[in-house]
Amino acid sequence: MKKILITGALGQIGSELTMNMRKIYGNDNVIASSRRRQENEVVESGPFEIVDVTNPQHLVDAVKKHKPDTIINLAAILSANGENNPSAAWNINMNGLYNILEVARENQCAVCTPSSIAVFGPSTPKDNTPQDTLMRPTTMYGVTKVAGELLCDYYFKKFNVDTRGVRFPGLISNVALPGGGTTDYAVHIYYEALKNKKYTCFLQKGTYMDMMYMPDALDAIINLMEADPTKLVHRNAFNVTAMSFDPEGIAAEIKKHIPEFTIDYNVNQDIQNIADSWPNSLDDSEAREQWGWNPKYDLTAMTKDMLDTLSKKLNIQY
């Protein structure tokens, strides 16, 4: 990668990935884009374009103007929000991806589109879920991610577009708040632990899901896109994970630092149903073998870093 266009650059992943990539590749070589402009560090520190991925001309204009060799497509509607508005989820997640692949084909750009553990469904093996397995998702978000994996594979095989992607688990960030996903509790719990010493969880006890700290997620995107393409077999669907825990597990880790912290439960059944359809844990051995995936953070290290960072951000001692 030498010059990169990032769509959805003001979202949870994009806001951090843009700044991280600008440090690596130079401010002028990482073009941020979003449907709306916000006055923040991402917009002010380098090139920014208004790009609605459902508008093909927006993409054409941005690519012709900046001539990127790589497009990182982060424009998406996530799982919980997608169930509230499935038509919008399909439009942005699928039609937007098609538009990106078309402009990439015409301009010889590589494309990275993250997939998700949402591609799996109730009939998928729950524990140590294999790289290649049954995928029958029960959410619109999951449907779009399965279709997106297949569409990216098609563009690679049919048109030789260099498409790559990972199946992200829940992502935990100390910078941007999450945007309507099933795993959002694992971010909110740290804020509430510092602010109120208690948290009411919308998932029930014993709900295991794979998770990853954002610094590892950023490394996953960059390392995959910089990997030797001849070694990549599962180009658009690499399982990646760093940890798997349930609400009690993350609460217990927080209590090591904030002993008075308590957790209770008020289950949102719609979100619980989504969580129940996803794996408890993933097998990411193919990513480790093919491009050297190796996360740096486990639950213990992440919790310490989250609490330290957020305590400074919120000006709350713990």
Rank of each mutant, 00 (worst) to 15 (best):
E248F: 08
P169K: 09
E253W: 02
N160R: 03
Q269C: 02
V146S: 08
H257L: 10
N236Q: 06
G142R: 01
I254W: 03
D219G: 00
F168W: 06
V187W: 02
V233S: 08
V166T: 14
F159A: 05
D228G: 07
L232W: 09
D219M: 04
N266T: 08
V240C: 02
N266Y: 03
N236T: 12
P169W: 13
I189T: 04
V166Q: 07
P215L: 11
G181N: 12
N223L: 02
F202Y: 11
G179A: 13
N174R: 00
K197F: 06
N239F: 00
D219L: 03
F245P: 00
F202W: 06
K198C: 13
A252V: 00
A237V: 01
E260V: 09
V161N: 10
G181A: 13
A220Y: 03
T241V: 02
A186G: 02
K205I: 05
F156V: 00
E253Q: 14
A220Q: 11
S244C: 04
I271Y: 11
T241C: 08
Y185A: 12
M211A: 13
K197I: 01
K231S: 12
I254R: 02
A252H: 05
K195M: 13
N160L: 11
K198T: 09
D264L: 03
E192Q: 13
T262E: 15
V146I: 15
A227D: 11
M214K: 00
L150I: 10
G206P: 04
E192D: 15
P229S: 13
M209Y: 12
M211D: 13
Q204W: 06
F202P: 08
N239Q: 11
S244W: 14
F202I: 09
T262R: 09
S173P: 00
Y213K: 04
K145H: 01
Y155H: 07
F261E: 07
K231D: 08
D184L: 10
L218C: 07
A251S: 15
I271A: 10
Y155E: 14
D246W: 06
E226C: 04
G170H: 09
R164P: 01
V175L: 11
P178Q: 09
V175E: 15
A193Q: 05
L151C: 06
L171S: 04
G181I: 06
G206Y: 11
E253V: 00
P215M: 11
T144P: 00
C201S: 13
P215F: 04
F261S: 06
N174H: 11
E260N: 04
M209L: 14
A193S: 13
K157C: 11
L224V: 09
E226T: 10
K197Y: 07
V233Y: 11
D184P: 01
A251R: 01
K195T: 01
Y265F: 15
N268C: 12
